[in-house]
Design a protein around this nucleic acid. Structure first.
Lengths: 209, 209
DNA sequence: CGTAAAATGTTGCAAATGCAACATTCATTT
DNA sequence: AAATGAATGTTGCATTTGCAACATTTTACG
């Protein structure tokens, strides 16, 4: 995963963070981190750990909208965190760096020659995020649970270049990711196994297509 | 909708396009525009007209993944156009400007003082795209067709600040956008009308909640 | 290590949804 | 203005899916 400070020296990273007035915060596991963030436009970098964006339904259901790991970023310009029903919760101990969005193009920063690298990194991160969203949309628009599951496993397999791999998340999380009922997904996976499309042993997946 | 060349003078836009080696192409309606694009990383700006990204199912179904209008952009780093099942078709006569991605940070361009504005515009476009995707994901993860429809209309209403507005697309397109069967959506809208949540007269929508 | 919590697998049942087929209205083109 | 094609509305029917409830297994944590 790309990093906002890739190819910038340690010294210049410090300088950059100072010029950007970047703030770093540490959070424990299972903390709602957006309850105390200022309302201006910002970007937030997950330095370490991971967070989940959770949509809280009016009748108590929770849907994981997305999960971000170290190196990824979010922000009110980037993510859907304006909606009050959405919370952002740490999955583990997590460190976040906050940067005001307008600072990215402030007067001082553009004098530095590492600025161009920083901009490239930022654009790369944004396009990576877009790719992630596009992939999910492609899955979500599948007409049936079966197609969603197959497309997901096919993607994962192609990313890794092998037909055997480990689930990168729990089946419960996958059901949320694909936005289908967990038990219905479990049933469908059973059918897929019976029909010879899949083998599942715990977290070990083998696709046969 | 933001524009990549916003707040840059006509003269400087020309200069910028020259430095970026930007190419402009014109297409007629209903043309598959990605069949003849070079494979390098690029961004494409919809100068005028509109295009649709269509996923072509293995059994002949077509799903509109997204629609882009004038001012919006796409590209292999941004959109999911790597997949061979996806085509990009013009909805009307359309003009597209292509820019090589790497040119965005080339040596010559960074000497110009309008560069910072250009970068700001580019980042704004990318974050706008992300917001668009996030909105769609939020709709697609709704558990039922009813919730998808209601959330869509609620969004549209809030964007405009009024409970009466016109459909910005056809119902057929909306069904694709929400990834539900058109006739099932039509039926559900009928129920919503009966239950007093919606009024529909042709393209005129009134939500009552 | 033991216990609580989370994840998983399963199944019956009701409800929602997709699909097909058709009539009707609306829009576009010549 | 006529004609063609696209969009819309409707409905029966089969299938898929969500939901609830439960047993079992795995994981996390004190």
């Amino acid at each position: 995963m790309a990093n906002l400070f890739e190819n910038i020296s340690e010294k210049n990273i410090l300088k950059l963070k100072r010029i950007l007035s970047a703030n770093t915060a540490k959070y424990k596991k299972n903390v709602n981190i957006l309850s105390n963030v200022n309302p201006d436009n910002f970007i937030a970098l997950v330095d370490s750990g991971s967070v989940q964006f959770i949509f809280n339904d009016y009748d108590g259901n929770k849907t994981i909208i997305e999960e971000l790991n170290a190196g990824e970023m979010f922000g009110n310009l980037i993510s859907n965190i304006t909606s009050e029903e959405i919370t952002c919760v740490t999955k583990e101990d997590t460190q976040i760096t906050y940067i005001e969005f307008d600072e990215i193009t402030n007067d001082e920063i553009i004098k530095n020659d590492f600025y161009i690298i920083f901009i490239k990194n930022l654009i790369k991160l944004l396009t990576d995020q877009l790719t992630t969203r596009n992939n999910r949309i492609e899955l979500l628009t599948k007409r049936s649970t079966r197609d969603k599951i197959l497309a997901y496993f096919k993607n994962e397999s192609q990313k890794r270049g092998t037909k055997k791999f480990n689930m990168p998340m729990t089946f419960t999380e996958l059901a949320n990711y694909l936005s289908v009922d967990r038990s219905a997904m479990s049933r469908e996976i059973k059918y897929l196994k019976e029909d010879g499309f899949l083998e599942v042993n715990g977290k070990k997946i083998t696709i046969d297509y």
